[in-house]
Design a protein around this nucleic acid. Structure first.
Lengths: 359, 359
DNA sequence: CTGAAAGCGCTAACAT
DNA sequence: ATGTTAGCGCTTTCAG
């Protein structure tokens, strides 16, 4: 592996040892134009891939660009055109598995389309409050934004976007006026619940996310509905906070009740916590109690026992968000709401109930 | 929760229903200047917080800004000044816990300093190859870059940076000419190994990361050295690929050997995989074999049993990178290399060896 | 198909 | 302490 500084093609001399860095400017269109013996206009046309340039001229320009190592100046382009080839990502926290997967996909899809991605952290680190996103955005110079929600952090937040700024929200239920891209929470929760029911369990308990989260809400709703369609009255939702710790706490309660044979946790972390509780309580998984998670973390297959869970396609969510946003930027009207299906991953944490153990 | 479009302060009329969005431009310095009855230069001075403006004038300008809802145009500023108030983050994959945590800290620290963060995905998604970072960067308009390494992906990559571009590399051993900020891998691995030794284990096996990774290399070196200092000849390193799956595979081998009573895995995922292997093999943790990880994932405390591991302070790594980079951008010469210490988190996966079991 | 002119919004350099 | 001038590198508009 090497990692080396390389000098600029057009600079043979030593460093300026100046105080403020980045004094160097690369070649401009004018330089290329001079080199190629054309007007800078023509260079611009070539740079933007416009059609009406003769082949031979085009080649001359391209050669000149190559020779000088020309790179367009985005600032100048933005200043003039009002477009930035940049999309902003507004998020509250990066440190969740789903968000980072999604961001990864966003970055990849955006870069493929020639857009750069700017992170816009919304919580003002100094005050801890959500601060004027609106103003931030006017300043940030982006052509559109993707908003990744952490609903439970948002109770008191108004995110007011400039009216003409294309936006996509990644979260179910974002409300008025926005394109929404999200995992199909309903379908996922139904898959999980039906799996347990089909195994022969007569009741399924649910460890839910915080009740301020829309994803959590939808998963709980769908779990309840699936149960009711099977003629089962759903028990109360036990609300965790997505953390393994909270799943552990709730799992301890649930585990003490011998009637509990099947648990659907709203994410893999809480499922992990619940499994730990069962281990401590001496309840065997899956013999005594079956557990299903949601997300399919990388590690879920290595939990003990390997966790049956619902796989979310975060990559698709990210990719489709950008697709949608790019359409909006181009002035098209894309599909308003996009729902990404999930898949049930059956592993070792679920099995039919032990005979005579369930209610 | 509300999420609403808000109209521009200076626009009362309806939408233009135009094709290409973002036709609206906010008020410029000239507008503010007119409103306040001063020259746009004075507005610029106020906007940049320069000292030499009279209080009353300053207030007039501030009021005008407020009234018009003025926001500076970064593109114009960048075009003129050659500085962008933006830092680039070059990374190969977002989808690891550590990288994400680090990125989070970077975004926070940068934003606090008034810098925005631009993601620069280095692997060209279309070709899958590492493509001209150099050119990307010249185009991206950033004042500096933080490079987050995944060394094992980098075997054939030359990252050539413009010579005068401030840069910080997050990885031990990055080589020539760069500021390096990283977790103190040596200290961490020593902590882990010593912990096992102090418990009374006579030998410690090591599940290492891929041998193309510098972090993995350093952890392995330090493990070996610690062992040798205790008069123990270290066994061969078993190389995984950071995944839980690889830890499981290696754990299966290790577990079959009754002499193995203590394992140090180079990350928590591999430790998790090794634990799964022990469970399947019927080797009790920690009674039969002790396991130590590295990273301290959020979930590590909820593994079964809760994992003893080395906590990395990713947040500090991110924050210090930005600190260092900002110094460079300002023209100062910051500390060249920064090492962030780790902490041993003792949980339930380690214990003294069962009597008569170790070699 | 190509070029000339104008100006996007800002700041650096020089007046006053 | 404030204003004037010039121009960053590009694209848009209009002429040829």
């Amino acid at each position: 592996m090497t990692l080396s500084h390389s000098s600029f093609p057009d600079l043979g001399d030593g460093n300026a040892a100046s105080h403020h860095a980045r004094t160097t400017r690369g070649p401009s269109m004018a330089d290329v134009a001079r080199e190629a013996g054309v007007s800078s206009q023509t260079v611009s046309r070539v740079a933007n891939g416009l059609s009406n340039v003769e082949e031979t001229t085009k080649k001359r320009v391209l050669d000149a660009m190559q020779k000088l190592g020309y790179r367009p100046n985005r600032a100048a382009r933005a200043l003039k055109s009002g477009r930035f080839k940049s999309i902003g990502v507004i998020m509250f926290t990066l440190s969740t598995f789903g968000n980072m997967r999604t961001l990864d996909a966003i970055a990849t899809a955006a870069s493929r389309a020639g857009y750069s991605v700017t992170l816009i952290p919304l919580t003002d680190p100094t005050t801890g409050k959500v601060s004027g996103a609106y103003h931030q955005l006017r300043e940030q110079q982006v052509d559109g934004v993707v908003i990744i929600f952490e609903a439970h952090l948002l109770d008191h937040a108004d995110i007011a976007l400039p009216e003409d700024l294309p936006a996509v929200v990644i979260d179910s239920n974002a409300g008025s006026g926005y394109s929404v891209v999200d995992t199909d929470q309903h379908q996922g929760a139904r898959l999980a619940t039906e799996h347990l029911l089909e195994l022969g369990h007569r009741q399924v308990w649910h460890i839910g996310g915080p009740d301020s989260s829309f994803s959590a809400l939808h998963r709980a709703e769908s779990w309840k509905q699936t149960l009711e369609e099977a003629g089962i009255k759903a028990p109360e939702v036990l609300h965790g906070d997505w953390s393994a710790e909270s799943g552990y706490r709730i799992g301890l309660e649930l585990g003490k009740n011998p009637a509990v044979s099947a648990i659907f946790a709203a994410n893999d972390q809480m499922a992990l916590g619940a499994m730990r509780a069962m281990h401590e309580l001496g309840r065997a998984i899956p013999e005594d109690v079956s557990i299903v998670g949601f997300d399919d973390l990388e590690e879920a297959a290595s939990f003990w026992p390997p966790l049956t869970t619902i796989r979310q396609d975060f990559h698709a969510v990210g990719r489709l968000s950008i697709e949608n946003l790019l359409h909006q930027i181009a002035g098209d009207t894309p599909a308003r709401d996009v729902s990404v299906p999930t898949r049930l991953m059956v592993r070792k944490s679920t099995a039919p109930p032990a005979p005579g153990r369930s209610v």
